[in-house]
């Protein structure tokens, strides 16, 4: 039971969305975009979120796009994770989305909500980061299509009133070798305590992480060490971990030591997998 009230809008065109946002904002209703609503509803029930109006973006046809367009795979932000998984356009993407929440919840929670949500996992972003994908953002100031790595720094850097419309990746990534290892405290249906997603392109490994640290990230510095074949495999891993942009997280799910151990293990498996290196 959500104890407070909010207004609900479901526009069908981008212009309507923008108008609605501006309108509600000028009334002081602090509107928020509504994707699957799974986070908004649960947080609202606990009153850890308050808003006076939500704008459901799922009726925008653009947010439901799921196809290849001119060499790019396009994923609408209003797609449910299940829809993306089942399409299997991008195997690594499907693989990473699959352990998020549970099957029934994935029928509801959206790509946009996972990436823009408050929960600090945002696992859907990981394959997009390593695939050097692009995001299409729309807001009162207009529409922009930008490299994901320039607007995602632990979180998607949205301007006021902006929302995620689509994400795109180059089709070529689907044939690149990849690696993904997600570890949970114990139960599979749980947040990750470590999740590493890696893609190998042009002989170089790109890596993105969630659960390991307080927020998800991709680090070019870490990649430079993991790809430094002059070092021993052990060193590549150790040095890369030393350069993590954020400290290991410690919380009720796992200690920092355990996260480190699992990450080291996963990275060894990654090297074995992507380079045939046995560490």
């Amino acid at each position: 039971m959500i104890p407070f009230d909010f207004q609900y809008y479901r526009p069908t065109t981008i212009q309507e969305v923008i108008n609605t946002f501006n309108d509600l904002d000028s009334q002081g209703l602090s509107p928020i975009y509504y994707g699957g609503g799974t986070e908004i509803i649960t947080m609202a029930r606990k009153e850890s979120l308050s808003t006076k109006a939500v704008i459901d973006i799922k009726a925008l046809p653009e947010t439901k796009v799921l196809e290849e367009v001119k060499g790019e795979l396009v994923f609408g932000a209003g797609l449910s994770l299940s829809e993306i998984i089942e399409s299997n356009l991008f195997t690594l993407f499907s693989k990473v989305l699959r352990p998020i929440a549970d099957h029934t919840v994935r029928n509801k929670l959206t790509l946009g909500g996972n990436i823009c949500g408050r929960l600090p996992y945002r696992e859907a972003i990981l394959p997009l980061l390593v695939a050097d994908g692009k995001v299409v953002l729309v807001g009162p100031e207009g529409r922009r299509e930008v490299d994901i790595n320039t607007v995602f720094d632990k979180r998607l850097l949205l301007k006021k009133g902006e929302f995620l419309l689509q994400v795109k990746v180059n089709k070529s990534v689907i044939s690149s070798p990849y690696f993904n290892r997600r570890k949970e405290k114990q139960t599979l249906v749980d947040y990750p305590i470590t999740n590493i997603v890696a893609l190998k392109e042009g002989g170089k490994i790109k890596m993105a992480f969630s659960g390991v640290a307080p927020l998800p990230f991709r680090s070019i510095e870490m990649e430079s060490f993991i790809n430094n074949k002059e070092l021993s495999s052990e060193e590549r891993i150790t040095k890369a971990i030393e350069l993590m942009p954020l400290p290991f997280k410690k919380d009720h799910l796992a200690s920092d030591d355990y996260r480190r151990a699992l990450l080291e293990k996963s990275m060894k498996e990654m090297l074995a997998n992507l380079e045939g290196v046995i560490v």
Binding site: Y8, R10, G36, G37, T38, I41, T42, T104, N107, K108
Partner: peptide, 11 residues
């Protein structure tokens, strides 16, 4: 299947 506690009736 959908969890009806995570769904607004208006949706």
């Amino acid at each position: 299947p959908i969890k009806s506690c995570l769904t607004l009736a208006v949706e």
